[in-house]
Simulated scan of single mutants.
Amino acid sequence: MKNDQLYPESSREMSEKRAALAPEISEAFVGFSKAAFKEGALSEKTKQLIAVAVAHVTQCPYCIRSHTRLAMRKGATKEEIMEAIWVAAEMRAGAAFAHAALAVDEMDKVKP
């Protein structure tokens, strides 16, 4: 890892180290991931666009990079990827706005 990087580079070596520390769980996760992204009722492209959006909400830099690359390999355009990111941004902002109801409810309970 370079000193100016917040996160270490994603690499095969890092993946192998993680897998070696918990091989059975790692293998199960890889299988789950393959099953989740397999063509089904939703296309692989659509699933990757969903993953791009979710990665932006969870703010996982590794996921953002890998699923953006995979979405393009599955045929997504740059415009489709950006729209997916905007949907994620709206949903995240919308959640903050919707949760304001909790604050309003609590404020109504507090007596001056």
Rank of each mutant, 00 (worst) to 15 (best):
A20K: 04
A98L: 15
H67M: 13
M82A: 15
H56E: 10
A96Y: 09
K47G: 01
G31Q: 10
S66K: 06
L70W: 11
P8C: 09
A76G: 13
A53F: 02
K78L: 14
M14E: 04
P23G: 05
E39N: 14
K38L: 06
H99T: 06
K111R: 13
K34S: 10
C60I: 05
L102R: 08
A35M: 10
A93T: 10
R92P: 00
S10V: 11
L42D: 04
A96P: 02
A41I: 12
D108W: 00
V87T: 07
G94P: 01
V54P: 02
A53V: 07
Y62S: 05
T68E: 03
K34H: 12
M1N: 10
A51C: 07
K111N: 09
A55K: 01
L6D: 08
E39L: 07
S33P: 00
A89S: 15
T68I: 08
N3V: 10
K78E: 14
A35N: 11
D4H: 13
E44T: 14
K2M: 04
S33D: 06
I50C: 03
K78Q: 10
R69K: 14
A96D: 08
H67Q: 14
D108A: 13
E24I: 04
E39H: 12
K47F: 01
K47L: 02
M1A: 11
M82Q: 15
E106H: 11
K74R: 15
K74W: 07
Q59E: 09
S15V: 06
A101D: 05
I50K: 00
I85N: 00
A20N: 06
F32P: 03
E13R: 13
C63N: 09
H67I: 06
A98M: 15
A55Q: 01
E79R: 06
A28V: 03
N3P: 02
A84H: 00
I64P: 00
E106W: 04
A96W: 10
P23Q: 01
E80G: 05
R69F: 09
K34R: 14
S11I: 02
V52A: 00
A55N: 01
D108I: 06
W86T: 07
